[in-house]
Write a protein that binds this DNA or RNA. Structure first.
Length: 847
RNA sequence: GGGCGAGUGGCGGAAUUGGUAGACGCGUUGGUCUUAGGAACCAAUAUGGCAACAUGUGAAGGUUCGAGUCCUUUCUCGCCUACCA
């Protein structure tokens, strides 16, 4: 029997698609557009299984929408600036550009082997001057709009990568790439004023109905809007300090005020800098806050000042002012008022320093005297011991009354605070987009005029320097603007800037005068479906949303301000981990197993391998499977089938060699089935028209389309298997050739998005290659003539009875009662009543 | 500490959203064909029972004619987040 030669077939089709530019897209106003975008990869060297999953999911959708006659934009590009290139170049004495371009070439070849329906004519690479030129122009534009500024402040400094990190890039106190413990350093930095849009970014989330709730909640928490008020506390004891401003969400607890706490970085710390014990305290503060546990269990420590704060509600209530380690400088005003009875942190602090704990809120349902004892009470309740606030309910009544009072006394005002901070975009790195700023000899900066863009990165430079290699590029830094000499800025842009607008560039990848063309984005934007990993839930997605707001700010031409209409976050690809007895990680290639339970080293067959938990594939744990080898062995269709089959796409999937083999075998089996069908069709049978196939096909169309829309891709694969199981039997029946052909074409169309190579080959054999259309389910065949009625006694299923569809209730009951099993059940019982659901179920209630 | 989500066969997972629990795949068992099979095909596969039948979706209650699905309580696991005032 002829075996299906996937290598030949897949290569042929991939060449055909490339030669014919089958996936090239242009604006076509007669068609509805669909912009399908997957997060573009960093060109690290080779594609990994995560890419395979991501791009397969996207490709199924893109091909499905194409068959539905949408004009589909499905582009691909490279997020090609970033530190791995610079590090690899340093290690191997290469140029980052060469390293990157080589990787892109390899990965592009690999992606093509997956058979993705990508318009490669739109390929972009963020490290090319044609791309970053426009980014520099956007920089100027945002600068002119007042959305960019420079300021000196503390930054997260990664000592290994020698660069600044955004807050979002610091995970558990460590750099997200290097894993080094992040230090605090004061530097002059460029910032995007993302905080200007805090409210818009928050409100915009409400309209993103096709985003996972999880991601919206994460962004909401990140933006962190809180309602409260600012309070100015009068200060005594330090002649140069009149008042201290605090932010609070609980002004209602002001009568429980027992201390005021400042951040160690608070401006007022300047009065204590020469105090040895303050220095000691500050040192202690910087030690804590690296690991999860230390943050959670960090002891509250403080430094008592000579200042005294006065309660605006009662001039006689005077409390000490401390510096405390749990107060953050970059939230609110870096100062809080402490109410130990109703805040756990304040409670811990008060306990440690023996400060009074005065209860001012009593739980709603509490009867009698209430006193906070061994932990703070933070729930809702009624105000007590609080003068004019007594008896008011908190949060609602008491808080608004308290704010009212504070405002009346001129001691503060209502205030909304956001957690979201401005986005620091300066990086002390070579391999990134140069910032179009230049300095005169006095250090004053000017923007580089548009006409002088792009500022290209110097090539073939020495990278093994301390700090930023660009600092050493004396010649490159020289620039003349309007006849005056300046020196270029050496910071480059955070690579998250590159990916904040690439989806716009895909709409006009070749546009020379500007980053995009308005006609193009008017037609294509927003991205209808964006697909990628949930790890970008905050960083990349928030920045992209910001970029749209920034570009559309003061620009009436913009219609859509949200870049991504739909978002889908796929799960990770996992694999078991293996270790040898010396505790070294082993790759799956290095181990074997006969029973699937006990694993041994291939090298030394006596050595038993320790099998660890299944985790996301990563180089460090060596639990990776190379997609290239898998495609080589089993073919792209089989890989696509498997990567979609075992788990819902939003959940993690376990890589399984057995599962992969099963998918491969299915492709082979399917081809044999196909051959049989073709033979039957060719036989030109004038035989009978059996309903079974029509009914199956049309029901399948309905099911399949529905599952596709809902991203139930694993169920689609099950539908494909089911269809095989059905057809392999049904094909033996005496079908009329044209009925068979008609149905088979519909079925083939359904499976095309998932396994495009074999489906295309099958269509070719049927001489049915052009004008493929997603089939519509024909109602005539969806209506069954008979239905199976579930018969229950007291709600428990007892039998199934086949009756005519839409039969009158009385007749259904009569038919069902005649059923032997049911009549036996009913014979010695008293029938109280019955419940009947049309075409579905009869339930007899008996005694 | 806070937020989100999930608990269904030996395993991954289905279930038209309140109406036949376990689709589909893996694995396992038996069989056919084979010199052989880690190939192919056929059959079985939630549990107990020879069977009729009974019991079954983390646990306990509840609503309902009927609950994997809704409500309450509870346990376990996963992910995210973190001294945010």
């Amino acid at each position: 029997m002829e075996r299906y030669n996937f290598k030949l077939v897949e290569e042929n089709w991939q060449n055909y698609w490339q030669k014919n530019k089958s996936f090239k897209t242009e604006i076509n106003k007669n068609k509805k557009k669909f912009y399908c975008l997957e997060m573009f990869p960093y060109p690290s060297g080779k594609i990994h299984m995560g890419h395979v999953r991501n791009y397969t999911i996207g490709d199924v959708l893109a091909r499905y929408k194409t068959l539905q006659n949408y004009n589909v934009l499905h582009p691909m590009g490279w997020d090609s600036f970033g530190m791995p290139a610079e590090n690899a170049a340093k290690e191997n004495d290469l140029d980052p550009k060469d390293w990157t371009e080589k990787n892109i070439l390899i990965m592009k070849t690999q992606l093509k082997k997956l058979g993705l329906s990508i318009d490669w004519d739109r390929e972009i690479s963020t490290c090319s001057p044609e791309y970053y030129k426009h980014q520099q122009m956007f920089f100027l534009e945002l600068f002119d709009k007042g959305l960019i500024y420079k300021k000196e402040n503390y930054v997260n400094w990664d000592p290994v990568d020698q660069t600044v990190l955004a807050n979002e890039q610091v995970i558990d106190g460590r750099g997200w790439r290097s894993g080094a413990i992040v230090e605090r350093k004061k530097l002059s930095q460029w910032f995007f004023k993302i905080s200007k849009f805090s409210d818009e970014l928050l409100k915009g989330l409400d309209n993103l109905n096709n985003w996972p709730n999880k991601v919206k909640i994460m962004q909401k928490n990140w933006i962190g809007k809180s309602y409260g008020c600012e309070i100015d506390f009068k200060i005594e004891g330090n002649s140069s300090v009149e008042k201290i401003k605090c932010f609070t969400t609980r002004p209602d607890t002001l009568f429980g005020f027992s201390f005021l706490a400042l951040s160690a970085d608070h401006p007022l710390s300047k009065f204590y800098e020469n105090d040895v014990s303050f220095q000691k305290f500050k040192q202690q503060c910087s030690k804590t806050g690296t690991t999860e546990e230390s943050i959670a269990q960090a002891e509250k420590i403080g430094f008592k000042t000579n200042m005294i704060a006065v309660n605006p509600f009662d001039k006689n209530m005077k409390v000490p002012v401390y510096f405390a380690n749990f107060v953050l400088m970059d939230y609110g005003f870096g100062a809080v008022f402490g109410c130990p009875a109703h805040d756990q942190r304040d409670f811990d602090f008060a306990k440690k320093y023996n400060l009074p704990i005065k209860t001012v809120v009593k739980p709603n349902d509490f009867k009698g005297d209430y006193n906070v004892d061994d932990e703070a009470f933070v729930g809702d309740g009624v105000l007590i011991n609080s003068s004019f606030l007594n008896g008011l309910k908190t949060p609602k009544e008491a808080i608004s009354k308290a704010i009212e009072e504070i405002e009346q006394r001129n001691a503060g005002k209502k205030k909304v605070t956001f957690r979201l901070k401005d986005w620091g975009i300066s990086r002390q790195r070579y391999w990134g987009c140069p910032i179009p700023i230049a300095y005169d000899e006095k250090g004053n900066f000017v923007t580089v005029p548009k006409e002088q863009l792009p500022i290209k990165l110097p090539e073939n430079i020495v990278l093994k320097t301390k700090g930023n290699p660009l600092d050493h590029q004396v010649e490159w830094r020289k620039i003349s603007i309007n006849g005056k000499s300046y020196k270029l800025e050496t910071d480059t842009l955070d690579t998250f800037v590159d990916s904040s607008w690439y989806y716009l560039r895909f709409c006009s990848p070749k546009n020379k005068i500007y980053g995009y063309d308005f006609n193009d984005i008017k037609y294509w934007m927003p991205v209808d479906q964006y697909i990628g990993g949930v790890e970008h839930a905050i960083l990349h997605l928030l920045y992209s949303r910001f970029f749209m707001l920034a570009l559309s700010h003061d620009n009436k031409k913009f219609i859509d301000k949200e870049p991504f209409e739909g978002l889908f976050t796929q799960g990770m690809v996992c694999h078991e981990t293996y270790k040898d007895k010396k505790n070294n990680w082993l790759s799956p290639d290095e181990v074997y197993s006969e029973d699937g339970k006990n694993f041994f080293k291939i090298e030394d067959q006596k050595e038993k391998v320790i099998v660890g938990s299944s985790e996301s594939m990563s180089k460090s744990k060596k639990n990776v499977i190379d997609p290239e080898k898998i495609i080589e062995n089993y073919g792209a269709d089989a890989v696509r089938l498997f990567i979609l089959s075992d788990s819902p796409p939003e959940k993690d999937i376990q890589w399984s060699e057995q599962g992969m083999v099963a998918s491969y075998k299915f492709i082979q089996k399917f081809w044999l089935l196909h051959k049989k069908v073709v033979e039957k069709i060719k036989s030109n049978n004038k035989g009978s028209n059996i309903e079974g196939l029509n009914v199956y096909t049309n029901k399948l169309i309905q099911k399949f389309s529905n599952n596709l829309e809902k991203f139930n891709y694993n169920v689609i694969i099950a539908n494909i298997y089911e269809t095989y199981n059905f057809l392999i039997k049904e094909i033996e029946k005496d079908y009329k050739s044209d009925i068979l052909r008609e149905n088979y074409i519909k079925i083939l169309t359904l499976i095309t998005p998932v396994i495009p190579h074999i489906a295309s080959e099958a269509f070719k054999e049927l001489n049915h290659e052009d004008g493929l259309q997603w089939p519509k389910a024909d109602d005539r065949f969806l209506d069954d003539k008979f239905v199976n009625i579930v018969v229950q006694i007291n709600g428990k299923k007892k039998s199934l009875v086949k009756v005519e569809k839409d039969l009158e209730d009385d007749e259904v009951i009569n038919t069902v009662k005649k059923n032997e099993k049911i009549s036996n059940f009913l014979s010695d019982k008293i029938l109280l009543r019955h419940i009947i659901i049309k075409n579905r179920l009869v339930n007899f209630i008996v005694k």
